[in-house]
């Protein structure tokens, strides 16, 4: 009896151990590039390019000041990206909340057809619209202007879909009660629906913010003036500007990822819930 118990227990422990080792290897694999990036960004030029020791012999936090100042426009790149990402995100939240609400709660002729037309835009590869949009930007004289970086991306079929799904799940009794209290649609949306849809709002905000913060191909096409370029292009130009000075390059990359990581850490609880719900309903 006791022998059998011990054997089961041993198998159980062994299984747990195996699971944890695989999970841990995965975690190391995920994290290692970050750790190396931050450590190298703190090394001296000689140490960074030799890549012989893992830890820096002297921790040079001054590399960050250098990186920030070395390419004269770096602060400007940072501002451009921040402005672009925040404005685009706000735009998407506003247009998607309104449209998502109409599709979830209101009755009007052509509702389902219009919804399907909007959804079909998710299937269109970004590359197809690239050239026509570029020509459109030229014709509108939006090249090297924030309008080109922001306005085409202030609506998203994905966000509308996500918000509509959440809005639909809110019991209609709440709306009926609100109407009896003399609430308009806009008041109901603002004071009841939106606060109840936090995971969906945060998910669509985070995806939009990430997409905008990390965008590369579109800004590359619609900006020529370095003053208008965002961080991601700024970093690539850093490679040529700073030559082989790996430590400054990696300090610049670290600076560019800090805001995104912070936002992700603070919002991840809602975000994961949001992503999970899209996955299930997909």
């Amino acid at each position: 009896m006791t022998v059998a118990f011990n054997r089961d227990r041993l198998i159980h422990i062994f299984k747990r151990l195996a699971i944890h080792s695989i999970l841990l290897i995965g975690a190391l694999f995920s994290l290692f590039p970050f750790v190396w990036m931050v450590l190298t960004s703190l090394k001296s030029y000689i140490e960074a390019s030799a890549a012989e020791s893992f830890f820096p012999s002297r921790w040079l936090f001054s590399n960050y000041v250098q990186a920030w100042n070395q390419v004269g426009l770096f602060p400007r790149y940072f501002e451009n990206t921040l402005f672009m990402a925040v404005t685009t995100t706000l735009g998407v939240l506003i247009t998607s909340s309104l449209a998502g609400y109409a599709f979830a709660r209101m009755r009007f002729p052509g509702r389902d057809t219009l919804f399907i037309i909007l959804l079909s835009t998710m299937m269109v590869p970004f590359e197809v619209t690239l050239i026509p949009n570029f020509i459109l930007m030229r014709d509108l004289h939006w090249i090297d202007r924030y309008e080109a970086l922001i306005i085409p991306w202030t609506a998203s079929a994905f966000s509308i879909f996500l918000l509509r799904q959440f809005f639909k799940a809110i019991p209609s009794e709440l709306y009926d009660a609100a109407v009896l209290d003399g609430c308009t649609h806009l008041q109901f949306l603002w004071s009841i629906v939106l606060p109840l849809s936090k995971p969906a709002l945060i998910t669509s905000a985070l995806f939009t913010f990430l997409g905008s913060w990390n965008s590369l191909m579109w800004p590359l096409l619609v900006t020529n003036n370095p003053v208008m370029r965002p961080l991601q292009i700024g970093i690539t130009s850093f490679i040529t500007d700073a030559g082989t000075e790996v430590q400054y390059l990696l300090a610049a990359v670290t600076i560019s990822v800090i805001p995104v990581i912070l936002i992700y850490f603070f919002l991840q609880r809602w975000f994961i819930e949001g992503v999970a719900r899209v996955g299930i309903r997909g």
């Binding site: 995965g26 975690a27 590039p33 990390n214 991601q232 970093i235 560019s256 990581i261 992700y264 991840q268």
Partner: peptide, 11 residues
């Protein structure tokens, strides 16, 4: 595990 997804491709 999700962290790499958040990072910019350039970085």
């Amino acid at each position: 595990y999700f962290l790499p997804y958040v990072l910019s491709t350039v970085g």
